[in-house]
């Protein structure tokens, strides 16, 4: 029995590794749908809605890639992954890309052998505290009990932050955001820590969001980025350029309202023409159809539109653009030229 279990583990490991090497774009095309790893449930980023359809910022990125490949934003199979299972799911080939509030770090890039496409959300780790706790700064948290999701970069940031400020704390590890929320609301931990966007999303689901406050300190840089496996650069290009197409579309003023008109006939802006495939052969270079970017943008609109409908200020999540504004508006979102 013990032996069989051992062999079983090796078989699984062997099969997992075997699936990873092939050309992903061909596989995806042959399969007719994109397998995309998302969060198990984080309001605004990826969560199923009342009718069971996946919605959110991360989900929109998956749909845009599916749009670029198939011209159909619904040709996606969403695979919910936890912080612990996400990398195994990607490395084993269970998913083609991971769009799951994942921070781009050196060791994940280099040691875990993943390729990060383009930063979709510039985030940072913060603390959520009840107002009744009477804390106005994270520097006052000496001795606090902190709820934290295991298997994330937040765990390491937290250890670093308290060490740097010479404070002690008691970590309460939780597996999912839902568990963290339960423990936090019951007072089993004083503060809850994760990416500031996640805190805003979590707070939005509380009964009385006004009773809780996100502390001003942002203790880390968290560039949240969709990622693919190392070693398949063609596939990496498809995902990366799709992200850039969404950002460029916002910069060039292409919206879901005017995209049909702009792509019907070549206009007088050559970059719009090249992006929408009415001029040049960018799609062909990627191994996709000429109207790939048009299809990607049509699914959920440009980057700004996706942001506003999923996590923007008019949604329950209520996040401001901040660092995620276009570079022309003083933010960091910047797409290389399409030529």
């Amino acid at each position: 029995m013990k032996k069989t279990a051992f062999i079983g583990a090796l078989t699984v490991a062997g099969l997992m590794a075997g699936a990873a090497a092939a050309a992903t774009l061909d596989d995806v095309k042959a399969r007719g749908k994109l397998n995309c790893g998302v969060n198990t449930g984080l309001a605004g980023f990826s969560a199923p809605n009342a009718s069971g359809e996946w919605e959110g910022f991360d989900v929109a990125m998956c749909r845009a890639v599916a749009g670029a490949i198939f011209g159909d934003g619904t040709a996606v199979e969403f695979v919910p992954t936890t912080g612990k299972t996400r990398f195994t799911a990607l490395a084993s080939g269970e998913v083609d890309m991971l769009s799951r509030v994942t921070t781009w770090t050196f060791s994940r890039d280099v040691d875990l052998k993943f390729s990060f496409a383009a930063v979709t959300y510039y985030d940072g780790q913060g603390f959520l505290a009840p107002k009744s706790l009477g804390v106005s700064s994270a520097k006052e948290l000496d001795g606090a009990t902190v709820c934290i999701q295991t298997g994330t970069t937040t765990e390491l940031n937290l250890a670093d932050f308290f060490r740097k400020n010479n404070m002690s704390y008691e970590p309460v590890p939780v597996e999912t955001n839902a568990e963290g929320q339960q423990q936090y609301l019951a007072g089993a931990c004083d503060v809850y820590t994760t990416d500031a966007s996640g805190l805003a999303a979590t707070r939005a689901t509380f009964e009385n969001p006004g009773d809780h406050v996100v502390l001003p300190e942002i203790i880390s840089k968290e560039p949240l980025t969709p990622l693919v496996r190392h070693g398949d650069d063609e596939w990496g290009d498809v995902v990366r350029q799709t992200m850039f197409a969404l950002i460029a579309a916002e910069e060039l003023g292409i919206t879901s309202a005017n995209i049909d008109a702009l792509s019907a006939t070549p206009g007088n802006n050559p970059e719009i023409n090249r992006l929408l495939g009415t001029e040049g052969n960018l799609g062909e270079m990627l191994g996709l159809s000429a109207d790939w970017a048009k299809n990607a943008i049509k699914v959920g609109g440009n980057y700004g539109e996706i942001f506003e409908t999923t996590i923007g200020e008019n949604t329950a999540i209520g996040l401001a653009r901040g660092l995620n504004a276009l570079w022309t508006d003083g933010g960091l979102q910047y797409a290389p030229p399409f030529r």
Binding site: A13, S107, K113, G151
Partner: peptide, 11 residues
């Protein structure tokens, strides 16, 4: 759990 995640050494 955490070590596996931070190092990516599943096997």
């Amino acid at each position: 759990g955490i070590t596996l995640n931070q190092t990516g050494r599943e096997l």
